[in-house]
Design a protein around this nucleic acid. Sequence first.
DNA 1: CATCCGACATGCT
DNA 2: AGCATGTCGGATG
Length: 896
Amino acid sequence: MNPTEIYDALAEIAAKPFDPNEFPFAFAEATDAAKAAISKLRNGSTNKSDLPGGVLFNKKFHYAPALKGLTDVTLDQLRASKKTKASKPAILIASDGETIAAEHPASGDTLHCTFSELGDHFGFFLPAAGKERYRAVEENPVDVKATGKLARLYDALTKANPDWGSDERRHEMNQLMMRLIFCMFAEDVGIFPDNQFSRLLFTHAGDKGEEARETIIAAFNAMNLPKDKRGSLPAWTAELEYVNGGLFAGTIDAPRFDTISFRYLRDACDLDWREINPDIFGSMIQSVADPKQRSELGMHYTSVPNIMKVIGPLFLDDLDAEIHKAWDRAKALQQVLDRMSRIRVFDPACGSGNFLVVSYRELRARETRILQRLEELNGPGSMQMFSAIPISNFYGIEIADFAAETAKLALFIAEYQANASFAEVFGRRPAALPLKDAAHIRTGNSLRENWDEVCPPPAEGEEVFIAGNPPFLGSTYQSKEQKADLAFVFAEHIKSFAAFDFVAAWFFKASRYIRGYSARAALVSTNSICQGYSVAALWPHVLGSNLEIGFAHKDFKWRNNASANAAVICSIIGIRNQSKEPKRLFADNLESSADNINGYLVNAPTVAVEGTRNGLFGLPSMEYGNKPVEGGYLLFTAEEKDALLEQEPRTRDFFRPFMGSKEVVNGYRRYCLWITPQTLDEAKSIPAIASRIERVAEFRAGSTDAYVREKLLPLSYRFKQVFEAKSHSILVPSVTSERRPYLPVERVGADVIASNLNQVLYDAPEWCIALIASRLHLVWIATVCGKLKSDFRYSNTLGWNTFPVPKFSEDQLAELSASARRILKCRYSHFPKTIAELYDPDKMPDDLRAVHRENDDLLETMYIGRPFRNDTERLEKLFKLYAAKVKSQDKKGARA
DNA sequence: CATCCGACATGCT
DNA sequence: AGCATGTCGGATG
């Protein structure tokens, strides 16, 4: 049975009246138990249940009928049952026919729903069918459990109070959740004595939560007032602690609790909150408020190792060095402490506050170390034992209200936990309550906010460190609002910004913020802003004449513990005011010091190759391939082509081989219908083709691109962009694997139609192949072109037109042509091996390696009279030639 | 009209 | 089910 069938079966049970005796067997059947197993269960021979009317199916489920309104009690009995412990059922189920209470004993995850919703919660019951519900996030189990419980509570509350799910009340709803979490955490760690919150809540809220709303409101109001000012509140609130700290400031309201939401509240209170990680937990519960995000639970939260990659080189490493240097001198250590108390950390895209929490924790840990050392140096009792690092030194901006509330809470919890470790070391702890101050978390659109207002720039003696992981989004994927945000940031400073990735705006704002101040910034980014077109377009504006890249982590694959990871390669870029301090470059798990880190995140002088439509070095011009934009209706696999040919032999003359990257590299075959104005009438007379042309028109009519929708509609018999060779084409696949030692390039006849996944030299001389297939060319392309992830992405404007070559003589060109032919011939001798197979770095044939080597030696000798020693030397020479050419062009331009 | 890109998309093994 | 590796066409200059 697949999950859909299980859903149907459970829904069917739910639709019928509840029969407490029949239910377990129907449930067993619905969850895919064998007929024989069910009859054994029915006749009692395998039923091990020790509860009245109960049915225990070994390893699958333990069910017991409940008296009206007492499903919770029955669930407790199921949980406590000795037989449950012995036979480890995946699910416990109690029902009275009105509601269901269920639990996964392994994870402690619970479900409360009405009986009629049984089918809707089929996912919860899948373990009874031996199916995993979903791949659990590999995180602290407490965090996972807590997230699940909170999500259910949130859902149940918004279901019972639809208005609390609306935009107007979202903030109040989120505040409520955070306050509840704080209370549950506080009583578990002992900030609240005697479980006072849940004890009073469940004493005064009624059995089914009838009074839960009023009780919660009264309790929260009390926590916001010193104990002597609670005259207007119910007497029982006198006992509650005064919390303050802003957490209970502002409006206090609560939704009505129905039986189900009240049960989830009880479940949440039962959880042990002591072990939650405020850093990761925060990002996980972000998904609570946004059901859409649930499936990608925590997909974009930054893991602690990645946060450390940012804040380490940003300021912690420097601090550690200073502490190390001062280690034996009390006065110097005291100065470090003073410095630390004046460090402020600002995350302009703080989400649930991971960066702030981890930064706070790291600073507090260092502070504790220093205080310990000072006590050693000055003698016991000599130190005033309090922390000089307040959470009010931490600033954030976050657009999502729930996340912003979470961030505040996470810092409270982090503070508490830091104080607890402080107490472990010194036996004294700062008073936990009332909370003194809060982090400065602004709920808003970071790109619209004035950062100076959120986090005032550092005064003399202060420092501000900006750290974070802003969202990445290419221009194709940006919403209207996001495009407007980009314009808001860039319009008055830069002409062309619309093609920037969304993350570029954060770098730009950070650069304006830190300029001239004792402030630095480091942000996680997609690596694409340090590749190709972006380098010349963005970095000069970010850095200007006063800033520099102080450190960078180049190209690492995004990873966190979420089950589905975002597919992106990241870089971390730290910017600062120009400084004599060393620069650090992290690449391929190695750290090196750099004289200069340029926009490509390479230790080299600052250069940025700008794309150009004109060849700088007189190479033949390279064009685009044919861009279909036709919904696939003019394209065919070999089988599809043969099928159509059989059905309609007249289509034969319209088929042409169609080659993109895959066809060149992996030897696949595809075909397209190639129709010209001259052959259009004949083509249309063939119904199979005519109908395809119509489908193309339909497809194009639905495009968001006005040009495709309007201008291209009458041209539906052909591709969007059309090119044809006269004698032959040289194809250069535009996206190919970074693993190959040489770029793929192929020569094909004029019958072949090249797709836009190739760049094409139409009817060009063969020596071009010798250039493209050279190591020199690969090194150049790898450096100056864009990438897809870290794979090569060939570009005519950025790569081919800018590729520096010496002035070749006719003889040299003839030699290169001969070399190109040798490479092609060698490949053919390995027929039918594909380029992918031949250029697999582990399996490349020796003779092919040899002809490439010869080709490299031949070409490189034309540059410098001998082969280059390594890629570094190759790049240096190429950049030197490039720079010289650009300079001479500029002069020409100036003269003209 | 030409080009650059993808907190990707998807087929492999 | 993770890893390798390039489609497709929107959006921009």
